[in-house]
Amino acid sequence: MNTIPVSQQRTLNISVLRHNPADPDSEPHMQTFQVEDADAMTLFVALNLIREEQDPSLHFDFVCRAGICGSCGMIINGRPGLACRTLTRDLPDDITLAPLPGFELIADLSVNTGKWMRGMAERLETWVHAQGLEQIDLSAIEAPMEPELAQQLYELERCIECGCCIAACGTAQMREDFVGAVGLNQVTRFRLDPRDERTDAQFYELVGDDTGVFGCMTLLGCQDMCPKDLPLATQIAFLRRRMVAV
């Protein structure tokens, strides 16, 4: 009955791209740590072990360590992913970790996705725009919504703003002002929401240029690397068709 996975013991060579911009003497360099692999070990466990036992200055971000908060996006062997739910048994002996590109580096594996995402939210106004939101009658029965629509909205809202789609996007890597799949997906989410009163013309003003939906070159890295398996390419294609039709 025991289904907890068991793996062979081996030594992992974890190379981390290290750099502390606050320290003028710091140069970006790779540093390799040896860690004994263990059953059900995740990169969350491995990195904490390194920090506790080998190098207390190693910097990285974890919050929920359960794959739902989006804090621990990093480049794992070349591709972006959530470190907390990456099991070492799925990786080769040599593991290379680097911070997500496209975001301001805080130190080592920690990047400022929060600042980027807040900027994106302000720019795309990712909230329900409706008249009289402050004067809602809280006692009245809520407006009905088709169950299927609610489910669809949730599917789009599962985005955790981890930044993997930005790191996976060639366009975003070249153009810092590109809002990326995370931003475009949120626009489609609010466009789909009948509670948001904005028109397509208003959405066009937000994403109707090369920093928005027309900047996307359909490289599909976003969809292929999204840890939440969001239908990002489909959403961007949808938004593009709508925006062209404005």
């Binding site: 909230w127 329900v128 409706a130 939101l133 809602i136 809280l138 006692s139 009245a140 029965i141 809520e142 407006a143 009905p144 919504m145 088709e146 169950p147 629509l149 609610a150 489910q151 909205l153 949730y154 809202e157 609010f190 929401d193 509670r195 948001d196």
Partner: peptide, 15 residues
């Protein structure tokens, strides 16, 4: 009231 406020703010409560 909290649920209804959040519903107006865009939470896609299951229906």
């Amino acid at each position: 009231k909290a649920i209804r406020e959040l519903a107006a703010w865009g939470v896609p409560w299951s229906r």
